[in-house]
Simulated assay, not measured.
Amino acid sequence: MSKSLYYRFSQFVGFLLGARVSVALLLTFALYVSTFFLFNQDETFRKFVFDFKVHGIIFCTVLTILAGGIINQFYDLEKDHIVKPFRTRIQSFIKQKYFLYAYLALSVISLGVAWMISHRVFAFFVVYQFFMWLYSHKLSRILIVNNLTFVSLTLYPFFGMMVYYERFSKKVLLMAIFLFLILLCIDIVKDTLTKSVDKAFGYITIPNYFKSRNTNIIIISLLVVTMAVSMKLILRTGISGFMAYYFASGLLMMIFCIYLLLNSSRKSKFLTLNILRFWVFVGIIAMLLNGLEGKL
């Protein structure tokens, strides 16, 4: 591979990492699955495929998430040099000004498409993009607010779809609470692994404000509440199929995570983080399989 080709390839990979493309792809997949199988159960697949308004909203969401990833890495650059040295090394092949140009372009295109869909959709994404920027610029450094804002921004597009389809029910509400709690646990556990770096750069997180023991109590308490929500979903909402198996087996998964957290080692926290992340992905697959089973 020539030096020029290697440099171009490194720039491309650097941009993908800076924009958090893998996160955007996962959220896109989750949005399509939840939209068709949870929020939009009455519409046929053919009608859904040709519902360009929905595709437009998801397209705007993807662009906004990519833009959010770029602006977040711009503000977290110094911290990422220590926490994610490989990624920042790859990203160094692109000047920061080009990341900002990409951020502006993605934001403008997203808002332009949103405007063509409707004024309400445009307002929805203006709010989304503003809080994406505000989180990266200010809110990520404020105790508790950082975790709550991050999780809320992750779930914001799903809330938009729920409002769009006017799909309000006890089951949907409990599933939203379950996902909120899981993502909150993931974010706090992640902060325990970057505790000293966060403190050095002025990020006031739960792990570097409270003692390690208190942080573990908070995470374990959240997992216990999540287990209670899972049991309510199984017993009170009539949930069935793969989703019922998912929430039932999730009880064992969370008990195992609690056991790991009691160990308090860095390795156990890293393992807990990846188990919880994997479980979110398993939930998306379970919803897909459950939906396909219902449609057939």
Rank of each mutant, 00 (worst) to 15 (best):
L143Q: 07
L143R: 02
L143N: 05
L143C: 00
V145I: 06
N146R: 06
N146Q: 08
N147M: 00
N147R: 09
N147T: 03
N147F: 00
L148S: 09
L148I: 09
T149I: 02
T149Q: 00
V151Y: 03
V151D: 01
V151F: 00
S152D: 02
S152T: 12
S152H: 05
L153Q: 08
T154D: 04
L155K: 11
Y156S: 08
Y156P: 09
F158V: 10
F158A: 07
F158E: 05
F159V: 15
M162W: 08
M162I: 13
V163D: 02
V163N: 04
Y164N: 04
E166W: 10
E166D: 12
R167T: 03
S169E: 04
S169T: 07
S169C: 03
S169V: 03
S169H: 03
S169P: 01
K170N: 09
K171N: 12
V172Y: 02
V172R: 08
V172N: 13
L173W: 06
L174G: 06
M175Y: 10
M175E: 14
A176M: 15
A176T: 14
I177S: 13
F178I: 08
L181D: 06
I182D: 10
I182V: 15
I182P: 02
L183H: 14
L183M: 15
L183Y: 14
L184V: 10
L184C: 11
C185P: 04
C185I: 07
C185W: 03
C185D: 10
I186W: 00
D187S: 13
D187H: 11
D187I: 09
D187R: 10
I188C: 03
I188L: 08
I188K: 07
I188D: 06
I188G: 08
V189A: 09
V189Y: 10
V189P: 03
K190I: 01
K190E: 01
D191T: 00
D191Q: 06
T192N: 08
L193G: 14
L193V: 08
L193S: 04
L193C: 05
V197F: 04
V197Y: 01
D198V: 01
D198F: 06
D198K: 08
K199M: 04
K199C: 00
K199G: 10
A200T: 13
F201M: 12
F201E: 14
F201T: 05
F201G: 11
G202Q: 12
T205V: 06
T205F: 01
I206F: 03
Y209D: 09
Y209R: 14
Y209C: 05
Y209V: 05
F210L: 15
F210C: 01
F210D: 00
K211T: 15
K211I: 04
K211E: 07
R213K: 12
R213A: 13
N214F: 02
N214C: 00
N216D: 15
N216A: 13
I217L: 12
I218L: 14
I218V: 15
I218M: 12
I220R: 14
I220M: 14
I220N: 07
S221C: 04
L223N: 09
V224C: 04
V225N: 07
V225D: 02
V225W: 02
